[in-house]
Amino acid sequence: MSEKKAPGSVSKLLNASWLRPFLLLVMIVVGWDLAIRIFGIPAYQIPAPGDVVKVLYTDWPELLAQSWPTTYATLLGFLASAVFGIPIAMLIAGSRTVESYVYPLLVFSQSIPKVAIAPLFVVWFGFGIVPKIIAAFLLGFFPVVVSAVQGFKSVDPDMVDLARAMKGSRLRVFCAVNLPHALPAIFSGLKVSVTLAVVGAVVGEFVGSNSGIGYVLQRSIGTFDLPTMFAALVILALLGVILFWLVDRIERFAIPWHVSQRADVFIGS
Protein backbone atom coordinates (compact mmCIF):
# COMPACT_ATOMS: atom_id res chain seq x y z
CA MET A 1 0.00 0.00 0.00
CA SER A 2 2.77 2.39 0.81
CA GLU A 3 4.60 2.05 -2.47
CA LYS A 4 6.79 4.94 -3.54
CA LYS A 5 6.11 6.65 -6.83
CA ALA A 6 9.45 5.83 -8.35
CA PRO A 7 9.86 7.79 -11.60
CA GLY A 8 9.41 5.77 -14.77
CA SER A 9 7.77 2.81 -13.06
CA VAL A 10 4.37 3.43 -14.62
CA SER A 11 3.74 -0.27 -15.03
CA LYS A 12 4.54 -0.83 -11.39
CA LEU A 13 2.01 1.78 -10.39
CA LEU A 14 -0.59 0.10 -12.58
CA ASN A 15 0.11 -3.19 -10.91
CA ALA A 16 -0.22 -1.55 -7.56
CA SER A 17 -3.66 -0.15 -8.35
CA TRP A 18 -4.71 -3.60 -9.48
CA LEU A 19 -3.25 -5.06 -6.35
CA ARG A 20 -4.86 -2.71 -3.87
CA PRO A 21 -8.30 -4.33 -3.57
CA PHE A 22 -6.61 -7.71 -3.16
CA LEU A 23 -4.33 -6.38 -0.46
CA LEU A 24 -7.37 -5.05 1.36
CA LEU A 25 -9.09 -8.40 0.90
CA VAL A 26 -6.10 -10.23 2.34
CA MET A 27 -6.12 -7.88 5.31
CA ILE A 28 -9.82 -8.49 5.90
CA VAL A 29 -9.33 -12.26 5.72
CA VAL A 30 -6.43 -12.09 8.15
CA GLY A 31 -8.52 -9.93 10.48
CA TRP A 32 -11.37 -12.42 10.21
CA ASP A 33 -9.08 -15.30 11.10
CA LEU A 34 -7.52 -13.41 14.00
CA ALA A 35 -10.93 -12.39 15.36
CA ILE A 36 -12.07 -16.02 15.42
CA ARG A 37 -8.93 -17.13 17.24
CA ILE A 38 -8.82 -14.25 19.74
CA PHE A 39 -12.51 -14.17 20.65
CA GLY A 40 -12.95 -17.93 20.34
CA ILE A 41 -15.96 -17.70 18.03
CA PRO A 42 -17.36 -21.21 17.54
CA ALA A 43 -17.39 -22.66 14.03
CA TYR A 44 -21.19 -22.99 13.94
CA GLN A 45 -21.45 -19.19 14.14
CA ILE A 46 -18.66 -18.06 11.84
CA PRO A 47 -16.42 -20.50 10.02
CA ALA A 48 -12.68 -19.97 9.81
CA PRO A 49 -11.43 -18.64 6.46
CA GLY A 50 -9.32 -21.77 6.09
CA ASP A 51 -12.42 -23.98 6.19
CA VAL A 52 -14.14 -21.83 3.57
CA VAL A 53 -11.13 -22.04 1.29
CA LYS A 54 -11.05 -25.79 1.80
CA VAL A 55 -14.68 -26.08 0.71
CA LEU A 56 -14.03 -23.83 -2.26
CA TYR A 57 -11.15 -26.10 -3.24
CA THR A 58 -12.76 -29.51 -2.70
CA ASP A 59 -16.29 -28.67 -3.89
CA TRP A 60 -15.13 -26.53 -6.77
CA PRO A 61 -16.65 -28.62 -9.60
CA GLU A 62 -20.02 -28.71 -7.84
CA LEU A 63 -19.95 -24.98 -7.04
CA LEU A 64 -18.90 -24.10 -10.57
CA ALA A 65 -21.71 -26.22 -12.01
CA GLN A 66 -24.19 -24.49 -9.70
CA SER A 67 -22.99 -20.99 -10.60
CA TRP A 68 -23.92 -21.35 -14.28
CA PRO A 69 -27.70 -21.31 -13.75
CA THR A 70 -27.31 -18.27 -11.51
CA THR A 71 -25.15 -16.56 -14.12
CA TYR A 72 -27.63 -17.26 -16.92
CA ALA A 73 -30.55 -16.00 -14.89
CA THR A 74 -28.62 -12.89 -13.86
CA LEU A 75 -27.51 -12.09 -17.39
CA LEU A 76 -30.91 -12.66 -18.96
CA GLY A 77 -32.65 -10.62 -16.27
CA PHE A 78 -30.06 -7.87 -16.65
CA LEU A 79 -30.38 -7.82 -20.43
CA ALA A 80 -34.15 -7.68 -20.10
CA SER A 81 -33.91 -4.71 -17.76
CA ALA A 82 -31.66 -2.93 -20.27
CA VAL A 83 -33.82 -3.85 -23.26
CA PHE A 84 -37.05 -2.72 -21.58
CA GLY A 85 -35.64 -0.05 -19.30
CA ILE A 86 -33.90 2.14 -21.87
CA PRO A 87 -36.86 2.50 -24.29
CA ILE A 88 -39.24 3.15 -21.40
CA ALA A 89 -36.87 5.82 -20.12
CA MET A 90 -36.86 7.29 -23.63
CA LEU A 91 -40.64 7.51 -23.60
CA ILE A 92 -40.74 8.97 -20.10
CA ALA A 93 -38.12 11.59 -20.92
CA GLY A 94 -39.67 12.36 -24.30
CA SER A 95 -43.24 12.94 -23.24
CA ARG A 96 -44.70 14.71 -20.24
CA THR A 97 -47.91 12.70 -20.64
CA VAL A 98 -46.18 9.35 -20.52
CA GLU A 99 -44.12 10.55 -17.60
CA SER A 100 -47.14 11.64 -15.59
CA TYR A 101 -48.85 8.28 -16.14
CA VAL A 102 -45.97 5.86 -15.90
CA TYR A 103 -43.35 7.29 -13.58
CA PRO A 104 -45.36 7.46 -10.33
CA LEU A 105 -46.59 3.93 -10.91
CA LEU A 106 -43.06 2.74 -11.51
CA VAL A 107 -41.86 4.30 -8.27
CA PHE A 108 -44.86 2.83 -6.48
CA SER A 109 -44.08 -0.63 -7.83
CA GLN A 110 -40.58 -0.34 -6.40
CA SER A 111 -41.91 -0.27 -2.85
CA ILE A 112 -43.36 -3.76 -3.29
CA PRO A 113 -40.82 -6.19 -1.78
CA LYS A 114 -39.72 -8.49 -4.61
CA VAL A 115 -38.77 -11.22 -2.16
CA ALA A 116 -42.35 -11.35 -0.97
CA ILE A 117 -43.83 -11.77 -4.42
CA ALA A 118 -41.14 -14.06 -5.82
CA PRO A 119 -43.05 -17.24 -4.78
CA LEU A 120 -45.84 -16.02 -7.03
CA PHE A 121 -43.59 -16.38 -10.07
CA VAL A 122 -42.91 -19.96 -9.07
CA VAL A 123 -46.65 -20.55 -8.94
CA TRP A 124 -47.00 -19.02 -12.38
CA PHE A 125 -43.93 -20.33 -14.16
CA GLY A 126 -42.83 -23.41 -12.24
CA PHE A 127 -39.40 -24.28 -10.90
CA GLY A 128 -37.43 -23.49 -14.05
CA ILE A 129 -35.21 -20.55 -14.88
CA VAL A 130 -38.08 -18.18 -15.69
CA PRO A 131 -38.95 -17.07 -12.13
CA LYS A 132 -35.26 -16.33 -11.49
CA ILE A 133 -35.00 -14.23 -14.63
CA ILE A 134 -38.10 -12.31 -13.67
CA ALA A 135 -36.77 -11.66 -10.18
CA ALA A 136 -33.42 -10.49 -11.60
CA PHE A 137 -35.23 -8.31 -14.12
CA LEU A 138 -37.46 -6.73 -11.48
CA LEU A 139 -34.51 -5.75 -9.32
CA GLY A 140 -32.34 -4.55 -12.18
CA PHE A 141 -35.00 -2.65 -14.08
CA PHE A 142 -35.58 0.37 -11.86
CA PRO A 143 -32.02 1.74 -11.64
CA VAL A 144 -31.70 1.57 -15.44
CA VAL A 145 -34.91 3.55 -15.94
CA VAL A 146 -34.10 6.20 -13.33
CA SER A 147 -30.58 6.82 -14.62
CA ALA A 148 -31.57 6.75 -18.27
CA VAL A 149 -34.44 9.19 -17.72
CA GLN A 150 -32.03 11.53 -16.00
CA GLY A 151 -29.55 11.10 -18.86
CA PHE A 152 -32.10 11.77 -21.60
CA LYS A 153 -33.47 14.78 -19.75
CA SER A 154 -30.16 16.45 -19.06
CA VAL A 155 -29.28 17.06 -22.70
CA ASP A 156 -28.62 20.74 -23.43
CA PRO A 157 -31.70 22.06 -25.25
CA ASP A 158 -29.46 24.36 -27.29
CA MET A 159 -27.62 21.30 -28.56
CA VAL A 160 -30.88 19.75 -29.72
CA ASP A 161 -31.94 23.08 -31.23
CA LEU A 162 -28.71 23.22 -33.15
CA ALA A 163 -29.29 19.78 -34.63
CA ARG A 164 -32.90 20.63 -35.38
CA ALA A 165 -31.80 23.79 -37.17
CA MET A 166 -29.68 21.60 -39.43
CA LYS A 167 -32.90 20.01 -40.60
CA GLY A 168 -32.13 16.62 -39.14
CA SER A 169 -35.05 14.24 -38.84
CA ARG A 170 -36.22 13.45 -35.33
CA LEU A 171 -34.63 10.04 -35.34
CA ARG A 172 -31.37 11.37 -36.71
CA VAL A 173 -31.21 14.12 -34.10
CA PHE A 174 -31.99 11.59 -31.39
CA CYS A 175 -29.24 9.23 -32.49
CA ALA A 176 -26.69 11.99 -32.99
CA VAL A 177 -27.36 14.05 -29.87
CA ASN A 178 -29.75 12.66 -27.25
CA LEU A 179 -28.64 9.05 -27.17
CA PRO A 180 -24.87 9.59 -26.93
CA HIS A 181 -25.50 12.28 -24.35
CA ALA A 182 -27.51 9.88 -22.20
CA LEU A 183 -25.00 7.01 -22.47
CA PRO A 184 -22.88 7.87 -19.40
CA ALA A 185 -25.99 8.01 -17.21
CA ILE A 186 -27.33 4.82 -18.79
CA PHE A 187 -24.09 3.03 -18.02
CA SER A 188 -24.06 4.10 -14.40
CA GLY A 189 -27.60 2.71 -14.17
CA LEU A 190 -26.51 -0.52 -15.85
CA LYS A 191 -23.69 -0.97 -13.34
CA VAL A 192 -26.06 -0.72 -10.42
CA SER A 193 -28.52 -2.91 -12.27
CA VAL A 194 -26.11 -5.76 -12.92
CA THR A 195 -25.17 -6.16 -9.27
CA LEU A 196 -28.83 -6.03 -8.25
CA ALA A 197 -29.67 -8.60 -10.91
CA VAL A 198 -27.37 -11.06 -9.10
CA VAL A 199 -29.38 -10.46 -5.94
CA GLY A 200 -32.60 -10.94 -7.90
CA ALA A 201 -31.48 -14.24 -9.37
CA VAL A 202 -30.51 -15.52 -5.92
CA VAL A 203 -33.87 -14.45 -4.50
CA GLY A 204 -35.50 -16.42 -7.31
CA GLU A 205 -33.44 -19.46 -6.40
CA PHE A 206 -34.27 -19.07 -2.73
CA VAL A 207 -37.98 -19.38 -3.17
CA GLY A 208 -38.18 -22.19 -5.64
CA SER A 209 -35.35 -23.83 -7.43
CA ASN A 210 -33.21 -26.91 -7.26
CA SER A 211 -30.15 -25.44 -8.89
CA GLY A 212 -27.95 -22.40 -8.64
CA ILE A 213 -25.85 -20.75 -5.98
CA GLY A 214 -28.97 -19.51 -4.21
CA TYR A 215 -30.09 -23.10 -3.88
CA VAL A 216 -26.68 -24.13 -2.50
CA LEU A 217 -26.90 -21.25 -0.06
CA GLN A 218 -30.31 -22.28 1.19
CA ARG A 219 -29.43 -25.96 1.46
CA SER A 220 -26.28 -25.23 3.46
CA ILE A 221 -28.21 -22.96 5.84
CA GLY A 222 -30.64 -25.82 6.37
CA THR A 223 -27.84 -28.20 7.37
CA PHE A 224 -25.77 -25.59 9.27
CA ASP A 225 -22.96 -26.19 6.80
CA LEU A 226 -21.45 -22.74 7.33
CA PRO A 227 -18.23 -23.21 5.33
CA THR A 228 -20.25 -24.13 2.23
CA MET A 229 -22.57 -21.19 2.81
CA PHE A 230 -19.66 -18.80 3.03
CA ALA A 231 -18.11 -20.35 -0.06
CA ALA A 232 -21.38 -19.71 -1.90
CA LEU A 233 -21.29 -16.09 -0.73
CA VAL A 234 -17.75 -15.73 -2.02
CA ILE A 235 -18.84 -17.04 -5.40
CA LEU A 236 -21.80 -14.66 -5.53
CA ALA A 237 -19.51 -11.76 -4.72
CA LEU A 238 -17.13 -12.89 -7.47
CA LEU A 239 -20.00 -13.14 -9.92
CA GLY A 240 -21.10 -9.60 -9.07
CA VAL A 241 -17.56 -8.26 -9.43
CA ILE A 242 -16.98 -9.96 -12.77
CA LEU A 243 -20.26 -8.76 -14.26
CA PHE A 244 -19.68 -5.23 -12.96
CA TRP A 245 -16.21 -5.28 -14.44
CA LEU A 246 -17.61 -6.43 -17.80
CA VAL A 247 -20.11 -3.57 -17.92
CA ASP A 248 -17.34 -1.19 -16.92
CA ARG A 249 -15.19 -2.45 -19.81
CA ILE A 250 -18.05 -2.01 -22.27
CA GLU A 251 -18.58 1.49 -20.91
CA ARG A 252 -14.97 2.42 -21.51
CA PHE A 253 -15.27 1.14 -25.03
CA ALA A 254 -18.59 2.89 -25.69
CA ILE A 255 -17.90 6.31 -24.18
CA PRO A 256 -14.16 6.92 -24.29
CA TRP A 257 -14.89 10.64 -24.62
CA HIS A 258 -16.59 11.01 -21.26
CA VAL A 259 -15.04 12.97 -18.37
CA SER A 260 -14.89 9.87 -16.20
CA GLN A 261 -12.82 8.05 -18.83
CA ARG A 262 -10.33 10.79 -19.59
CA ALA A 263 -6.62 10.62 -18.83
CA ASP A 264 -5.50 7.91 -16.48
CA VAL A 265 -8.12 8.19 -13.79
CA PHE A 266 -8.63 4.91 -12.05
CA ILE A 267 -12.27 4.03 -11.64
CA GLY A 268 -14.01 0.85 -10.65
CA SER A 269 -12.81 -2.53 -11.82
Binding site: M159, D161, K167
Partner: peptide, 16 residues
Protein backbone atom coordinates in the same frame (compact mmCIF):
# COMPACT_ATOMS: atom_id res chain seq x y z
CA UNK B 1 -36.30 25.45 -38.90
CA UNK B 2 -35.52 26.19 -42.54
CA UNK B 3 -32.62 24.24 -43.88
CA UNK B 4 -30.41 26.70 -45.70
CA UNK B 5 -28.97 28.37 -42.63
CA UNK B 6 -25.84 28.05 -40.53
CA UNK B 7 -26.07 28.92 -36.87
CA UNK B 8 -23.36 29.74 -34.36
CA UNK B 9 -24.73 29.83 -30.85
CA UNK B 10 -23.36 31.77 -27.92
CA UNK B 11 -21.66 28.60 -26.62
CA UNK B 12 -19.65 26.46 -29.00
CA UNK B 13 -21.96 23.46 -28.38
CA UNK B 14 -19.64 20.90 -29.91
CA UNK B 15 -20.62 17.29 -29.38
CA UNK B 16 -18.10 15.93 -26.86
Amino acid sequence: PHGDVGIVFQNALLLP
